[in-house]
Amino acid sequence: MNAAAKRISRLINLTATPLLAVGLLAGAMQSANAGSLTVDIKGDVLDKGTVMLALYKKDDKWMGKATDGRVIPAKKGGVSVTFDDVPEGEYAISMYVDENNNGKLDANGIGIPIEPYAFSNDASGAFGPPSFAQAKFVVGKEKTTHVINLK
């Protein structure tokens, strides 16, 4: 492996801790300044498989353990996910469509994902995922809707 490839693998070699007991954590997340967050995922590549979505807040390790997440069947035309009682603040989303339901984002022989994926803000990175700053958006006190366009 050459230096460039090593650098890339370092950049993305983030140990993701399983999203432990997301449901159990949900109660603890309620606070006075909490709103709801609806994520609309649009695109013509949602006709098969499962949408895997992870929600990160600012203090989380981006691309590591997420604050919350959803696993929902893909649906032609688009899917919508709502998180209730999300404390105000900055968040970012990473998501992909597990088209063959094998529980992972499949990649081709040189490591490029071959299942649809996206980040909030429709951010794309350079030789690695985009930064939290590129993908972040604000959840306010009331209702927030964020749209992600899968191609």
């Binding site: 590591g64 696993v71 990473s94 992972k104």
Partner: peptide, 10 residues
């Protein structure tokens, strides 16, 4: 989920 999935790919 996604974090780990992305970790495996370039």
């Amino acid at each position: 989920s996604t974090g780990a999935a992305f970790a495996a790919s370039a």
